[in-house]
Design a protein around this nucleic acid. Structure first.
Length: 428
RNA sequence: GUGAGCGUAGCUCAGUUGGUUAGAGUAUCAGGUUGUGGCCCUGAGGGUCAUGGGUUCAAUCCCCAUCGCUCACCCCA
């Protein structure tokens, strides 16, 4: 049997309502902040990701789906979206059309890692990017949007963590201070952390090894060494978040793994999804656009993992979706009326009702069982006796009551169903 | 890439201290009198017990390998 590729999953009809609910909330909330949707290709020139995410990162170093196409160009399936949005922003000269551009997206992403709870090789993210302003108003806005989407899904077990990485010069300065501080204890660190010491010393703070945590407990923290402007901006972000009633905590150890971040970074974690607990993460990247060859353009954004969010919703039972219903099931009493049933179904479907009937030539009882299973609100009987006298019977499934209609008056049946459906679902 | 656990019907799982026709619940299909659902009852179909090899008179059960799944590490959404 051919199965889906490791780390990929089919999203089956039964789960689709949850995805659609999530997507519609994403669209609604981004739209209210006037972000515009953007869709980019699933693959890009490999170099785009190498240059934006950073050669030393794990994503670029070992997780990308990279291959050569027939003209021998190196192609990569997108592992994240910010690089692609930045590329499109530069390519289509958005910066020249207007000073500030706000985008959102919903898209599959690809990373070749070992799958586990909340992690797949093809997964889906939504996210937003605001390009063209260094104002902390946008840092706060981005965090508020992310939080509001999760809150709209009724998720409770959430922690918003924020931090500031400052500008590169102050960060480099701090790295030296940290390096000096840890130098004497380097060989007490875990093997992984010793590697981090040389490659990306900030990441030692992420270590889950207890002895590492012990060693860095009293190390100087980045936030105390960042430049004045970054400090001021960070204060404003915190004030704005408080104003908007977004609960957050400052996590001075929050260091994100992508090279392009500057100043504000944030993450929202859930206590309900296993060890891969980050539902979304993001921050400011004021140098990225320039680095990719565009005019200097500050930016801030975030990405959120949809599988993880839906996993949290499932584990918190936070989404209470109504059961699926169909409006009308048409039951054929005599076999030779199949064509008439088909004709009626096509007619009512044109009136935008959800209509089903039996294609398999089954008994009336089986058809009724099917109608019940599909949660049909109404059943229309097309049957010998009445049909000869040009009548149809409509059964209201909730009450069992039956009404008779002349075959000529399909309109009346339609209006009756409309009224009943509208009564129970005013927003139908 | 590393480590641990698991792989029996569509799904959730029993089971055999190795012995002839492998079970349950659920789902599916049919029926419970001639043309009507939900509950209930009856019956049916459905498994090369992941794959390949080994040990044995005999393997779904023991051993090895392969593949797959799951969780964790790394890292990230």
């Amino acid at each position: 049997m051919i199965k889906s590729i490791t780390g990929t999953k089919d999203i089956l009809p039964a789960e689709i309502p949850y995805w659609q609910r999530l997507e519609s909330i994403v669209e609604k909330i981004f739209s209210s902040f006037n972000y515009k949707e953007i869709r980019t290709p699933v693959f890009e020139e490999t170099n785009l990701f190498v240059r934006s995410i950073g050669e030393e990162t794990d994503i670029v170093g070992k997780e990308m789906y990279t291959f050569n196409d027939k003209s021998n160009a190196s192609i990569t399936l997108k592992p994240e979206m910010t690089a692609s949005v930045a590329r499109a922003f530069i390519e289509h000269s958005f910066g020249k059309l207007q000073p500030l551009n706000k985008f959102y997206y919903i898209s599959p992403m690809f990373r070749q890692e070992r799958p586990q709870a909340g992690r797949q090789r093809q997964f889906h993210q939504f996210g937003g990017e605001a390009l063209g302003s260094a104002s902390p108003l946008l840092d706060a806005e981005i965090i508020i949007i992310a939080f509001r989407i999760l809150a709209s899904l009724n998720l409770k077990d959430l922690t918003v963590k924020i931090n500031s990485l400052g500008v590169p010069s102050s960060r480099e300065n701090y790295k030296n201070i940290l390096r000096n501080h840890l130098d004497g204890k380097k060989n007490q660190l875990s093997e992984d952390s010793r590697k981090r010491f040389d490659k990306n010393i900030l990441r030692i703070f992420d270590s889950k090894v207890e002895s590492d945590q012990e060693i860095i407990k009293d190390a100087p923290v980045l936030i105390d060494f960042i430049d004045e402007e970054s400090k001021k901006d960070f204060e404003l972000v915190k004030t704005l978040l408080k104003q908007s009633k977004v609960p957050f905590e400052v996590d001075t150890k929050l260091v994100r793994g992508l090279d392009y971040y500057t100043k504000t970074t944030f993450e929202i974690v859930s206590g309900k999804v296993g060890s891969q607990n980050a539902l979304c993460g993001g921050g400011r990247y004021d140098l990225l656009i320039e680095q990719l060859g565009g005019a200097p353009t500050p930016g801030v954004g975030f990405a959120a993992g949809m599988e993880r969010i839906l996993l949290a919703c499932q584990n918190e039972k936070s989404l209470n979706l109504p059961g699926e219903k169909i409006d009308l099931y048409i039951t054929r009493v005599d076999e030779d009326l199949t064509q008439k049933v088909f004709e009626l179904a096509v007619y009512f479907r044109q009136e935008s009702l959800i209509v089903e009937f039996d294609y398999l030539g089954r008994s009336v009882k089986a058809q009724m069982r099917e109608a019940n299973k599909l949660n049909a609100r109404f059943v229309l009987f097309v049957g010998g006796e009445e049909f000869k006298s040009k009548k149809l019977i409509l059964k209201i499934m909730a009450t069992g009551e039956q009404k008779e209609y002349p075959l000529e008056e399909l309109n009346e049946i339609k209006s009756f169903i409309y009224d009943e459906v509208y009564k129970s679902y005013p927003n139908y």
